[in-house]
Structures are given as C-alpha cells and as structure tokens.
C-alpha cells in the first residue's frame, strides 16, 4: 500500500522529532531544545526539498491543500479548517502574551577558557599549565598520596557542600542552586578536561566565567580569595584520584 505524500511528510517529520526527543524521554539525557529546534528546522526543509524535487511529487504533496480550496465538494472541511486555523493562531498568540514569554535564559556550560589567567600575583598560561603535583605520581607515590589526602581535606572543608560527598554534584545544598553544581564522577566530566581548565574554574569561580556561561547565576566562589595555589592543585589531584579519572593531556 502506498502512503500518500502529505502523510509521508508528516510521518517523516514526526519520526525524526520522536528520535530527537527519545534520549530525553527514555534515558533522561535530553537533547537540548535549542539544538532540536535547529535540527528540526533543517529536517523539515530537507524533506520539503526532496518531496518537491519533481513536479509529480510536488503535485501530490500539495494536492490536498489545493483540493481544499479548489474542490467544491470539500467545502465543509475547508470551512472547518479555515475556522480552526485562525483560532489556533489566536490561541498561540494569546498564550504568548499571557505569560509574557518568560523564556529561561540560555547558558552554555562548557565555555572556552582564556589564554592567560592572572592570579596569586602571577600570570598563568592555561595552554601550557600543568599540575606541579602530577609528576610526583611516578617519582614519589607516597608523597603524591599524601597530597591527594590533603586535597581531600580541602575538598571536604570547602567544596562538598555543593559538589557532594560522592563528587556527583549533589551536595546537601545543591538542590537550592541554579545552575546545579557540576559533578566530577563519571567518565564524561573532568576526564574530558585538562587540569589547567579545572585550575581556571576553581581559581576564578562563577564570576570568572565568560558572559555566555552566565556568570551572574553561578554560585561557585572565586577560590583565589580563600585557597592557596598549592591547595587548589591538591584538590584537583584529589578530584581525579577519588573518581578514578585521568586528566586530559594538554594540547590543542
């Protein structure tokens, strides 16, 4: 049985939309609305292009629409559609004005770091900055372990309120914070980042974020005020150690 073109069009678009929505509904990992919007825009255009590539299929695709206005026998349906359409448009417009938009601010969570950062009276080049404790891992494992433990103490005296006991981003104040604190647990978090990136984020905090990442809303303190440089490195070492992650090597 051949499915008529207009129905094909609707089915294809709906199936793609369903596929894009599925990760969010089934796995709890939604594809962001902003991306879905862009994807759908181009999918609809692409499907339209395919279906209008030949005269026959164009004809078939728009036949019901054409019939609606031209075929006298469809007058009843036409009238119904012609009444429903303005009402729907009106309803949507009403919905928009009623809530006044109220669109939540968009925010990018993984901003590009600056080239250079100034803190502790020094300049740090983030593209070459490495954790000074990292070399101890091979050279002096016992000393490294001691540093990791000290980093743990720093973490549990300063960070765990928000980032959590389990380093999963669910501290006992996390539920009060928007945006939520970031987790360190899992292979897709700090394992994707170099230690210099963490150093930047910790030292400069939420207020040090670039504009696109919403510095006005992040509650991450700028730790250069309260932690020493070595404490920051220790806590970074701890974050990797506790979660079993490895930092991403430097380089572009």
């Amino acid at each position: 049985m051949k499915i008529p073109k207009p129905l094909q069009f609707i089915i294809v678009v709906l199936v793609v939309y369903g596929l894009l929505k599925a990760p969010g509904l089934l796995l709890g990992k939604p594809i962001p609305q902003s991306v879905i919007f862009m994807y759908m825009l181009f999918v609809v255009i692409a499907v339209l292009l395919v279906m209008t590539a030949t005269d026959e299929s164009t004809e078939e695709l728009f036949a019901p629409v054409r019939a609606l206005v031209e075929d006298p026998s469809k007058r009843l349906i036409r009238n119904v559609v012609f009444i429903i359409l303005p009402l729907t448009a009106g309803y949507i417009a009403y919905g928009f004005t009623k809530t006044g938009g109220g669109q939540a601010g968009l925010r990018s969570v993984h901003p590009a770091p600056p080239l250079e950062m100034r803190a502790y009276g020094k300049a740090f080049d983030l593209s070459t900055l490495v954790n000074p404790l990292r070399r101890l891992e091979k050279e002096d494992p016992a000393e490294f372990k001691r540093n990791v433990e000290e980093g743990g103490a720093v973490y549990f005296r300063n960070c765990f309120f928000c980032h959590g006991d389990k380093l999963d981003g669910i501290g006992h104040y996390a539920h009060a914070l928007t945006p939520p604190p970031l987790p360190f647990k899992g292979r897709d978090t700090i394992a994707q980042l170099s230690e210099s990136y963490l150093f930047w984020r910790i030292v400069k905090g939420g207020v040090g974020l670039p504009q696109e990442a919403g510095p006005a809303e992040s509650s991450m303190p700028a730790w250069e005020e309260d932690l020493r440089e070595d404490e920051v490195w220790k806590v970074i070492t701890f974050l990797y150690d506790y979660t079993g992650n490895r930092p991403r090597p430097l380089g572009r």
Binding site: E116, R118, G121, K122, A123, D125, T128, L129, V130
Partner: peptide
C-alpha cells in the same frame, strides 16, 4: 616580570618554549 611583561608565559619550567 610576573605580570605586564608576561615573561613567565614562556620562561617557565613546563612549556620548554
């Protein structure tokens, strides 16, 4: 040396630049 001059961007133990 440590600030405006940005000397430590290259003259540091890790970059080898």
């Amino acid at each position: 040396f440590k600030g405006k001059g940005a000397c430590t961007l290259c003259h540091n133990p890790v970059g080898g630049r």
